[in-house]
Amino acid sequence: MIRFENVSKWYPGGVADAVDNLSLFINEGEICVLVGSSGCGKTTTMKMINKLIEPSSGTIYLDGQNIETLDTLTLRLNIGYIIQEIGLFPHMTVAENVATIPVELGWKPLRIKARVEELLDLVDLDPRLFGRKKPRELNASQKLRVGIARALAANPMIMLMDEPFGALDPVARTRMQDEFLTIHQKIHKTIVLVTHDIDEAIRMGDRIAVMRNGRVLQFDTPREILSHPADPFVSELIGDRKALKLMNLISCAQLMHDVSEFRQTWNRDFKAGGTLPGASTIGMQATAQDALAEMFRTGERFLFVEDDSHQVQGVIELDDLFKSVSQGDDARKQ
């Protein structure tokens, strides 16, 4: 979908290259996160995709087409763009903000109205309630929602997001990250997300490019980066509690095993429903980390896993959790 081929960017008088001979391939429909500390070239890399910055050398292809051959404005109209400050137009209402690009493209009023309502619904803002509000009346996460709706207005193939969750407090940030993942499942865009927050990268990314000094140190799935950091800097960036972070990527559904095995091992009485009386349960979507926390809370070495209709589907034991983190390592060492 997006391919960087030996792309470099240097500024006159700059000590080092902002981006140094970068090659990268981003698949269609994936969330690719560029992560690194400030000045590592991640934002420059992103801004070269929508030609806000021209590369000094190298080529960027979009769907096989060299972007230099594409008209700048047309290219940008086909790429959604969200920055940390969102940059909503303060003199326009929420609806007018979302309608900016459709108006620019000369859509019919009725079509614009329908599109705005559809998008505001998508980002969970009631169009009747929010459509006429001005940006100054919104809180940070509502602004981000409007920003996402505005970026999606003309149904772009790609979305570029520069620290989109940076302005949110920790609680709102986690919630918006989850909500955005839900939205992404509905819209299936190719997303390039820039962040300095490795936890955000692990949470959001299908693949993560760890950058430093204009180079990509490692480009891989979050799981692979956590279990096999390719470089001391990557290890340092991931920081402590690597195992816990890794457990965050594994769902209980992946870990659970059949209750019948468990029954034999432990030889306890089961009720008609299949669980022990008073035993605690956890949802299938919960992470291994959630399961660990729940076991520590109850003091039991096992948990039942339920589906949405509270039917027990399996069981997780403490050993499963241990294995989930270390097994990954063993399996790949072979």
């Binding site: 940390q84 969102i86 940059g87 137009f89 570029l160």
Partner: peptide, 15 residues
């Protein structure tokens, strides 16, 4: 004018 507004506008593809 807040420069982020202009950056957003340019990035969106407004002329």
């Amino acid at each position: 004018i807040d420069s982020t507004i202009i950056v957003a506008a340019r990035g969106m593809g407004l002329s």
